[in-house]
Write a protein that binds this DNA or RNA. Structure first.
Lengths: 118, 118
DNA sequence: GCACATATTCGACATATGTCAAGATCCTGG
DNA sequence: CCAGGATCTTGACATATGTCGAATATGTGC
């Protein structure tokens, strides 16, 4: 299990979404489950939502903590989870660390979950 | 929190997906997180995948247990989780209980997660 | 009604997870 | 270099979760 999961690859030549193409193998299921688990938490969903709706496109840790009403330590933990799953990217700028949602990763996850084949 | 979650309503007059329309409130985030959590497990993902790819459209508990290599008790537990989240429906037929994936629920969840507004 | 097959519920257990306070790290401005 | 602000890491804790074996229900056929 890699430290940080790469964004799910949707360029592979398959006509159907993995979940509806054929019964998923244990390995593929684990891969997708890890991404979903990253989103399957109220706090992380709210963080993603804030990032997705940000005008500037990125928000620093302190503002995120204030927005969701959790300690900065907890928010930092959640952001690490999201980063490992490839859902956000982060970079320092002075004292602050800014975070940005990966729209491509969100879209890739949606593609994987398409219920109807082709 | 209701015992069984209804399928997410996507007929409400909003042009944007909740996650990208505006910062999600704690209540909405919890709702969506519960659905995601139902899918965010390798065993449950495989179960959904088997149901989605079944020719007949439904599979009994025993066959599911055999397919994923878990005890029937565990599979029954997972199916209860999925049913509470509105992702599957189940019905008895003789000695067996057959389960069917709710494609509409899958699609609704995908809609909610659309990363780009409008 | 009884033996048998399928399913679910009930403990019980190990593991994972979310949360925070406290300490450590990293950066800027004197 | 030092003071102070922002962030991350660590330790600790309560809670939730996945799994199974055993017990209990539910249904079939004789």
């Amino acid at each position: 299990m890699p430290k940080t999961l790469p964004v799910i690859d949707v360029t592979s030549p398959v006509c159907c979404a993995p979940v509806s193409a054929e019964p998923m193998g244990a390995d593929a299921a684990l891969e997708v489950a890890l991404r979903l688990k990253a989103l399957a938490d109220p706090a992380r969903l709210r963080l993603m939502s804030i990032l997705l709706t940000s005008d500037v496109g990125e928000v620093c840790t302190c503002d995120l903590a204030a927005a969701v009403g959790l300690s900065e330590a907890t928010v930092s933990h959640h952001l690490t989870q999201l980063r490992k799953a490839g859902m956000v990217v982060s970079h320092r700028q002075g004292m602050n660390v800014f975070h940005r949602a990966r729209r491509d990763a969100m879209e890739a996850l949606r593609q994987v979950l398409t219920p109807d084949c082709c």
